[in-house]
């Protein structure tokens, strides 16, 4: 029904734009990772593997990458632990309050990411809300110093930010479960726990995978929460990249780290898509 000209008109502009700005820039990231910086602080366009050798040679890069993955994994687990039961409750037990509660989960997403990280800083600081509250109640005499400028603060803040992201796909997958399957399971004598474990949970796995991927990937690359709340022990891999692009002025090395992250993330996305397909019953 659609003519050639129409199809060309809807296809060419977006494909061109995406090719220039996305393919072009990601490809350039790849190229940069093989270039070097001269002593005069200019980028030398000669091809070498030195940046990647440097990444393997200097411990701090891999160590920081693993620490970031550890933080991201904790954020992922906590987001799922908070998000899954909430999604289950809303989908199966909230009755007519369901829509309202759903909106209540979404609303925090409308408060700026940066502002929420900042709010946690005002809560966790040594003269912050939590510490002064504890002292006001005479539960502690001195401020608890581990609350702020620690990996704990980063994990807490990122969990706060990514819990709704984990919740959304899980809730969507629970909502898609045909309710007569659940009733059939009950009628055939399964206990509520058996119904959950054998019927509902397996059907929600694609949502869990999507939510887990979001939480892990997005927190892996975060650099603002660590800068604001992490302190020296909460530094993540993206902070190193930021400093390489700023004061340390070594764009090619920064590009090499970013490209490794890109590869890692795309690999994870690919893997989670494969697993989602495997677990999807539709």
């Amino acid at each position: 029904m659609f003519s050639r000209a129409y199809r060309a008109a809807i296809t060419v502009p977006p494909v061109l734009w995406v090719t220039i700005f996305l393919v072009g820039s990601y490809a350039l990231l790849f190229c940069y990772s093989f270039w070097t910086v001269s002593s005069g602080q200019t980028i030398v366009h000669s091809w070498t593997l030195d940046n990647y050798r440097e990444l393997l040679r200097v411990d701090v890069y891999l160590q920081t990458l693993f620490r970031s993955m550890g933080i991201a994994a904790r954020v992922m687990i906590f987001s799922l632990l908070l998000g899954y039961p909430l999604a289950y409750y809303l989908s199966f037990h909230a009755g007519n309050r369901k829509d309202l509660l759903y909106q209540l989960v979404i609303i925090p997403l409308w408060v700026s990411y940066l502002v929420r990280a900042y709010a946690w800083k005002t809560i966790l600081g040594s003269d912050g809300v939590l510490n002064t509250l504890l002292q006001y109640l005479h539960l502690t005499k001195h401020p608890l110093e581990f609350l702020l400028y620690s990996p704990f603060a980063v994990v807490l803040t990122l969990t706060h930010i990514y819990t709704p992201f984990a919740f959304l796909p899980i809730y969507a997958s629970l909502e898609h479960i045909p309710r007569n399957l659940v009733e059939a399971s009950h009628d055939l004598g399964a206990s509520p726990f058996q119904t959950f474990w054998r019927v509902i949970f397996p059907l929600s796995i694609p949502g869990v995978l999507a939510g887990a991927t979001f939480a892990f990937v997005l927190s892996l690359g975060d650099f603002l929460a660590p800068l604001l709340l992490g302190g020296p022990s909460g530094i993540m891999i993206s902070n190193i990249v930021v400093s390489l692009f700023g004061a340390a002025y070594n764009w090619p090395l920064g590009a090499a780290i970013s490209f490794c992250m890109l590869g890692l993330v795309v690999g994870l996305l690919f893997l989670s898509e494969r697993l989602e397909k495997k677990w999807s019953f539709r």
Partner: peptide, 12 residues
């Protein structure tokens, strides 16, 4: 889906 830093740097 990508961390913003990757897209930001690439465009830079």
């Amino acid at each position: 889906i990508l961390p913003g830093i990757i897209t930001g740097l690439s465009l830079l």
